[in-house]
Write a protein that binds this DNA or RNA. Sequence first.
DNA 1: CTTTGGGCCTGGACGC
DNA 2: TGCGTCCAGGCCCAAA
Length: 282
Amino acid sequence: MPELPEVETVRRGLAPVMEGRKITRVILRRSDLRKPFPKGFQKRIEGARVKTVARRAKYLLLHLDTGDVVIWHLGMSGQVRIYAKGEAVPKPQKHDHVEFHLQHGATIRFTDPRRFGLMDLGFEDTLDQHALLKDIGPEPLSNHFSAPVLQARLSGKRIAIKQALMDARVVAGVGNIYASEALYRAAISPKRSAASIGPKRAAALVGAIVGVLSAAIRAGGSTLKDHRTTDGELGYFQHSFAVYGRPGEACPDCDCNVAKTGGIKNIVQGGRATFYCPRRQR
DNA sequence: CTTTGGGCCTGGACGC
DNA sequence: TGCGTCCAGGCCCAAA
């Protein structure tokens, strides 16, 4: 699934169920996802208590009272489902790979058809140095993210701004959908070079990124193929997309003649689809 | 150093 | 109905 709002939606579902509870049992139905589970994975987790469920970029972080941290990525197609105590847990299907059984009876199930997700272990006191996390840029919804910070991270980059926004070293958690949406909100062309973003555009972009991510979180994320909340509910922010997946349509702020202009354009950048309005975005 | 392209997987949509 | 092709929210790594 998953860009930042979808992962945050899952985090918010997991936190009240997992925090303060012991993990009584871990079931792995295969030995790897995108990469193998680390050695001793189950053993290091079982019996530990979850202190907090946090998030960094698109990674969920289960902080355990042993000092270990479960680093959990949902990949492209990962879904998390919570079954409350007493609720029937359906028989495992083909792509149900992991289960966490919790003290007091809840079950957390991870389903990931494409297996681009992963689970790893890190240590709380050196978590920032972990290979998966050490190069990740500022969290967009934290106070470490600002126009000067963004502009500095874009300076000297020869790539297009759209591709720069999807580089986790520039800003954490922005993927293909929200990169297009944020650029639309900021009225910046996705083709513009990253280095040409000055103070004014950087400020607009920061506002746009924060705005679109916050709105998406409030809506429970976006559901294209398979994102669900941990209750199995659909997120509905996809209905608020201005440009993503709407080629040929009029953008929300356009008063132009779509029959003439062709409306929202769909181009490919770095092998990924980009949607934008050439008249509104410069 | 930065940037590009291929690869990892499965499933669904589409054209014939 | 079946088959082939293309595409999909992410990320790593080798190569240029």
